[in-house]
């Protein structure tokens, strides 16, 4: 097996929690913190940590606002995040193709 595609996988995305966040955000224009937390069954602290990592990479944008006088945090993928996610998927597909018996 050629290890090249595996070595190219984005380490920031290649983690279960962060991959979940990226996948959810890739299919929706934006999601609130609570929507992500509930869907991925994560704790507040865990989700915050993962979002921070993705934010530092420039993959996720976080916006804070108010809804019904309550603070609302929403997350969305940045253009860089969308691109990185697409590349990650492409690499996974490449690995799958490599592993397929000929």
């Amino acid at each position: 097996m050629n290890p090249e595609p595996f070595l190219q996988l984005d380490r920031a995305i290649h983690e279960k929690g962060r991959l979940g966040i990226m996948s959810m955000l890739a299919a929706s224009p934006e999601l609130s913190f609570t929507e992500l937390r509930d869907a991925l069954e994560m704790t507040d602290g865990n989700l915050t940590t993962h979002i921070k990592v993705l934010q530092q990479e420039g993959y996720v944008a976080v916006a804070k606002s108010f809804q019904n006088n309550r603070p609302l945090t929403t997350c969305s993928l940045t253009a860089a995040g969308r691109k990185a996610f697409a590349e990650y998927i492409n690499l996974l597909e490449k690995i799958v193709r490599q592993n397929r018996p000929r």
Partner: peptide, 21 residues
């Protein structure tokens, strides 16, 4: 597990679908 990439892709598809209508 040699199928980890396929499993990851499946998990991504499931999550994206759950996030979409």
């Amino acid at each position: 597990n040699p199928n980890w990439a396929e499993e990851n892709l499946q998990a991504i598809r499931t999550l994206m679908e759950r996030s979409a209508v």
